[in-house]
């Protein structure tokens, strides 16, 4: 198992190098120039432009710039934002908990509803329940996040007034940041009202962000369950005189989970991508919104640093998924 882990870890290295190249190149391929954008409509003199360019290091060759970036990266230094001049790492870390909290709630929503829905659909194959679950999940999957978010805001926030429109917590509460998770911090502070407020703010964005993963998980669970239900060992389990519940939940689901876990792992990348839209709609102060701002300002260090960090997180999650595989599937472990 330990060797399995090391091999998987080693496989991450080339991927990570590739990511740094893409992140570095991506922002530079976009038309526009951070210095000109900073200067605004009045423009800037040629001398001042050259001076700033040298100061920011953009006068050097791209290769040299890339290796500077790589060198900094190895020291854990992603450079400073061109706009705020504070370290990119700090900027990222101060916003990341918000995104993580949102993504975890979205994923929990997707798994808690998607998995049982998929199992039920498979067990009731061809019945009304199956068609309903699959129809709803196809609708959810096809729903553009932007539109779906706005629909929910219109219904629950404007018309019904059940949830707030934006932000993470009501302005009435001030909570010390310990974990960066509003829900947990408010519980640590023992402030029940703040916790409910944080939860209220979280519900809609988590549903919006979790809808597509929910649909994917439900469909994958259903097809994987159907496949496993036809296996010989499921017939053996029935031949043992086990209850239907045990046959489904132990013998079938355990095997079906192997492919479902892969899909859940893949959703994490999608969640972080989806977070950019969701955070923009709900003014959620996470890295999605921060990245959008950084791109529009051509803040090179923030964009490349942010991309590398997000990619790194996705890679770590995939590593965890691979390990989860080994735990679920003895054929990989041994």
């Amino acid at each position: 198992m330990f060797k399995f882990f090391l091999v998987k870890l080693a496989q991450l290295v080339p991927t990570f190098i590739g990511v740094t190249i893409v992140a570095f190149a991506f922002i530079r391929l976009l038309p526009g120039d951070p210095i000109l954008l900073m200067a605004g409509e009045r423009g800037i003199s040629a001398e001042r432009y050259a001076e700033l360019k040298a100061q920011m290091g953009f006068d050097r060759s791209l290769v040299a710039q890339y290796f500077d970036f790589l060198k900094g990266l190895l020291h854990g230094d992603l450079g400073n934002s061109l706009v705020t001049h504070s370290p990119v790492m700090d900027e990222f870390m101060s916003r990341f908990p918000a995104t993580l909290e949102l993504s975890l709630f979205a994923l929990a929503f997707a798994v808690i509803i998607g998995l049982p829905a998929g199992v039920l659909a498979a067990v009731k194959r061809g019945k009304t329940l199956d068609h309903t679950v699959m129809g709803v999940s196809l609708t959810g999957y096809s729903m553009p996040i932007f539109w779906w978010g706005l629909l929910l805001i219109m219904l629950f926030s404007s018309t019904l007034g059940w949830t707030p429109v934006s932000g993470r917590i009501s302005f009435l509460y001030f909570i010390d940041s310990v974990t960066g998770f509003m829900t947990i911090d408010s519980l640590i502070a023992g402030d029940w009202g703040a916790f409910l407020s944080a939860l209220h703010h979280l519900v809609l964005p988590a549903i919006v962000l979790g809808t597509i993963p929910l649909a994917v998980i439900a469909r994958q669970t259903r097809s994987s369950m159907l496949e496993v239900l036809g296996e010989d060992y499921v017939r053996t389990a029935r031949a043992k005189g086990l209850s239907n519940f045990r046959v489904i939940m132990v013998h079938t689901l355990r095997n079906a989970l192997i492919s479902v876990v892969t899909v859940i792992g893949l959703q994490v990348g999608l969640l972080l991508a989806g977070a950019i839209l969701t955070e923009t709609i709900f003014s959620w102060p996470g890295i999605g919104k921060w990245m959008i701002d950084a791109i529009s300002r051509r803040d090179y260090p923030s964009v490349q640093g942010g991309l590398v960090l997000i990619a790194f997180i996705v890679m770590i999650v995939n590593l965890l998924v691979d390990i989860a595989y080994g735990v679920i599937n003895p054929r990989i472990r041994h």
Binding site: E231, D232, Y233, R235, T236, A237, A239, K240, G241, L242, H251, R254, N255, I328, N329, P330, R331
Partner: peptide, 18 residues
């Protein structure tokens, strides 16, 4: 399973791999 039990053609796939 208790009083009447059965074994099958494909032993390799009749046992649960997990």
């Amino acid at each position: 399973g208790g009083e009447m039990s059965m074994i099958f053609q494909e032993p390799m796939s009749s046992l649960n791999p997990c």
